[in-house]
Design a protein around this nucleic acid. Structure first.
Lengths: 250, 250
DNA sequence: CGCTCGTTTTGATTTGGATCAAAGCTTCGT
DNA sequence: ACGAAGCTTTGATCCAAATCAAAACGAGCG
């Protein structure tokens, strides 16, 4: 299957490709179609008309680019980041298969952050105008889309909490537990994984310097909580991490 | 007009009250109806069926309460906050007239934060089921609601930036400039205002301690940037505040 | 295969903001 | 009008994480 050939195609839609869109996608339980009926998912299929690859290091979209679509990650891993006028940047999230990117663009018809692939990735483009149209016809899709946006608000509330009140140790424990849980939901091991991001990116997300991330990894390892080796992380004492996260230790 | 008598009323809707809902509301330019046509606003009116007062210190809603409506602030001032398992809390935002509260509830059908009135306030209740229904009939309302949610995501991105990369001074300057700009958009002075929140609440929002907030207010005053006296704040050098915000000084 | 550049680790030192402490203001209830 | 409780300010001290520094490691490439 040559996905590349699809890249710039618009109507008429390629039917073979569409078959593999939502209805047959193994991510449908955690992606936009979650909770929709078979028939409704076929409705959704109509709007996902371009699959695209994004190479590691490339941007899916950038700040101030015109907004016209949201994206579902089919495979791969992304970071999103915002940048200050003087060049410092803040990683606002890491996204993996089944998650939705680009909702920041709706508010002002242009994107408000950069979405950068941290590994070669594949995404489904969902033109916003199609989504709007189909949401009018499929109320459960409208509702589900609202849920997806609301959950992004909730997630960001959680990050504000991390950054505002937690100590560096607690933040890193929270980060590891969250990553583990999301990987697990996708059928990967909850206990062992390879990080896709650098210490600097983790640090940016968690509001600390890369040296602090590195030191805390070493400390967690010394305490028997995890095993780390470069990108490899193995969780050895989840309960211990939870205690740090919940601030039972200090 | 006895608004109190409306509190627990449901259908049939009181027509006199409805007249004063969106179509005649002086907030319609900055509230949910912004950008809708006259006819569309009358559609919106149908769904705002309860006006309610919230006394200073009382909650409009609390974490884990069942979600069934979003709220437009008609007058007054709110904070939203999330709380950790061990009781520390993080103020996630301050909201004023024309702004929408409660979108955090959609994601999991229950609220994810507390919304507390910082002064006696009046809100318009917009039952979510009505909003969903009318959004299906009024596409521009659907689109506008998406924008409101997206802008909340954008706002939170900005707060993550504040908390993640900025120094205490920059955060406080950003806070003052943002407050000034929003008050100004509502017809109040951009240069003088009375804070509705305590130093502790500002500190919680900005990820610093109340003593730090107080010290920085004093420092800004000593530097001729502002004049502060308890809740009163006068901005004396907006450009100077912008420079601090943009990190041109250090 | 070996070089280069980016990433990670670890150590030494500094510092912005937290914490601890105490006094001065304000507001509110009786 | 008074007293109490809650804010705010300011000072002294401390500490978690930043910064500065340097070596070790690893992946990608000619």
């Amino acid at each position: 299957m040559k996905t590349e050939s699809l890249r710039l195609r618009s109507a008429p839609v390629n039917l073979d490709e569409l078959k593999t869109a939502c209805a047959n996608c193994n991510l449908r339980e955690i992606c936009l179609p979650a909770g929709l009926s078979e028939a409704e998912i076929h409705g959704l299929d109509e709007l996902v008309y371009v699959r695209k690859k994004v190479r590691r290091g490339d941007a899916l979209y950038r700040t101030d680019e015109a907004f016209d679509a949201i994206y579902a990650i089919r495979s791969g891993f992304f970071k999103t980041r915002v940048t200050t006028s003087d060049g410092r940047d803040q990683v606002t999230g890491f996204s993996m298969a089944g998650e939705i990117l680009g909702m920041d663009g709706i508010g002002h018809d242009k994107h408000n952050c950069d979405a950068i692939a941290l590994e070669d990735s594949e995404i489904c483009t969902i033109p916003y105008s199609n989504l709007e149209k189909i949401a009018l016809e499929v109320p459960s899709l409208q509702r589900h889309f609202h849920k997806v946006m609301s959950r992004e608000i909730i997630r960001e509330n959680g990050v504000m909490m991390l950054l505002g009140v937690m100590r560096a140790e607690e933040r890193l424990a929270a980060f590891l537990l969250n990553l583990s849980q999301r990987l697990n939901a996708r059928g990967y091991s909850a206990l062992e994984f390879n990080l896709r991001m650098t210490r600097e990116e983790i640090g940016s997300y968690l509001g600390m310097k890369l040296e602090t991330v590195s030191r805390l990894f070493s400390k967690f390892q010394a305490d028997g909580l995890i095993e780390v080796n470069q990108k490899y992380v193995g969780l050895r004492n989840i309960e211990g991490l939870r205690e740090i996260y919940a601030h039972h230790t200090r």
